[in-house]
Simulated scan of single mutants.
Amino acid sequence: MKRVYANSVIEVVDLDDVASGERAIEFCDPSNTDLCFAVVIPEGASWSEATVSLAPRCPEISVAFMLWAIDVAREIFEGK
Rank of each mutant, 00 (worst) to 15 (best):
D29G: 05
A73D: 01
A45V: 02
L67D: 15
N32Y: 00
D17N: 14
D17Y: 11
D16H: 13
C36Y: 05
D16V: 12
N7W: 06
S46Q: 15
Y5P: 01
N32G: 00
L15P: 05
S8T: 12
V52S: 05
I10T: 03
V18N: 12
A24Q: 06
R3A: 06
V63K: 14
V40Y: 08
M1R: 08
S46K: 12
E43C: 11
R3K: 15
R57C: 09
D17R: 07
S46N: 13
M66N: 06
A6K: 14
D14S: 08
G44T: 08
L35C: 11
F77A: 14
F77V: 09
A45K: 05
P42Y: 09
A6C: 06
E26C: 10
L54T: 07
F65N: 04
T33Y: 11
K2F: 09
P59E: 02
N7I: 01
C28H: 10
A73W: 06
F37H: 04
S8F: 12
V39I: 15
S31K: 08
I61E: 03
S20C: 04
P59G: 02
P42E: 06
A6R: 12
K2C: 11
F27S: 02
A45S: 14
A24D: 00
C36F: 02
F37V: 05
V18F: 10
W68Y: 13
C58Y: 07
A73N: 00
E26Y: 01
A73K: 02
A55Q: 10
V18I: 15
E26R: 07
P30Y: 09
E49V: 00
S62G: 10
N32W: 01
P59R: 00
E22K: 11
T33L: 15
V13R: 14
S62F: 00
V13W: 05
W68C: 01
I76S: 08
C28L: 13
I76G: 07
A24I: 02
M1P: 14
W68N: 02
A73T: 04
V40M: 09
